[in-house]
């Protein structure tokens, strides 16, 4: 039994209970194991008709009702009139779940958020936060005159910015229903009215992703990350497109280590022009 340990013996990080294990949040060390799993009973027993799971799904902010809705199920045992009656009940019940225009908008936006999140393979944490952000935007009455699709996309973009998960506006726009202009309008409103804690984007966030897309060896990636630090120290980053800086650092690192990589390739991955890339490259060379 080691549930009482709250600090990691290795790095003094905080300890989190994860199923039967207590795991350090920062270094991932398994501090202790508890034989008793306090989680829900997931077992389903074969041959038992009833599902023995004791609890339902956890609450989630990514549903308009936090996942607390009741559903009328289906049964093959019902026949004829009874079955039709339940079909009617089900329809009315589903209609009653959305009470207002506001609620309906929320459902629509949340579906759009879920869709973008799934096609960009972002984590559930981002999804939940984006949904919460959309909700607060709705509470602040920012939606008037702007599109729902724009807000859904902007909520995701804003969450990615604040969470330090690098995604460009263009990336979101390719999968979102919103146009870049709608996203921009919604994001500006969010940023202005809600005071999002967004700083300038750290070019480092882009480095690993571009490195994998360009299929570069680990050594190049590591060197590029050091170059980004250097560029930041020398003040080369401010005023430049962070994606461009990341691409330039990768290009410089590749040049140093004789790995074949053209400026055009690097620039294309970062969605910038080779000219942008060359600017940073030239200054890094100095």
């Amino acid at each position: 039994m080691s549930t009482t340990v709250t600090q990691c013996p290795e790095c003094n990080g905080s300890v989190k209970q994860q199923g039967v294990e207590s795991v350090c949040r920062s270094c991932g060390l398994v501090v202790g194991e508890d034989a008793i799993d306090p989680g829900p009973e997931w077992r389903s027993f074969d041959d038992d008709d009833t599902d023995r799971a004791r609890t339902g799904a956890p609450l989630t902010r990514s549903r308009h009702d936090r996942g607390l809705s009741t559903k009328i199920g289906r049964s093959t045992r019902l026949k004829g009139r009874k079955r039709r009656q339940f079909a009617r009940l089900r329809r009315e019940h589903n209609r009653a779940q959305i009470s207002s225009k506001r609620e309906r908008n929320k459902v629509y936006a949340f579906t759009e958020i879920r869709r973008i999140i799934s096609s960009m393979a972002l984590s559930d944490a981002i999804r939940d936060r984006a949904c919460v952000l959309f909700e607060s935007a709705q509470n602040e009455a920012l939606l008037q005159g702007r599109t729902l699709e724009g807000f859904a996309a902007a909520a995701i973009y804003a969450t990615c910015r604040t969470e330090g998960v690098a995604r460009t506006v263009d990336e979101i726009c390719t999968v979102a229903k919103a146009t870049p202009a709608e996203l921009r309008a919604a994001y500006d409103a969010l940023n202005r009215e809600l005071g999002l804690p967004t700083g300038p984007i750290d070019p480092r966030e882009y480095v690993p992703r571009f490195a994998t897309t360009l299929d570069l060896p680990t050594a190049v990636r590591q060197r590029a990350e050091r170059l980004v630090d250097e560029a930041q120290d020398r003040g080369l980053v401010s005023g430049r497109n962070p994606a461009g800086v990341a691409a330039a650092c990768l290009y410089t690192a590749a040049q140093e280590q004789d790995v074949a990589l053209t400026q055009a390739e690097a620039a294309e991955t970062a969605d910038v022009t080779p000219v942008t890339l060359r600017g940073t490259y030239a200054e890094l060379q100095e």
Binding site: S44, D46, T111, R115, K177
Partner: peptide, 29 residues
Amino acid sequence: VSTVVRSDVLTERLEHPIATGNWVGGRSG
């Protein structure tokens, strides 16, 4: 096409039965 397909629908439907053993048609285990 790209804005009407929600890719988590299919993923969820494929993974969940394998993870829990509750197959379509009400078979379990």
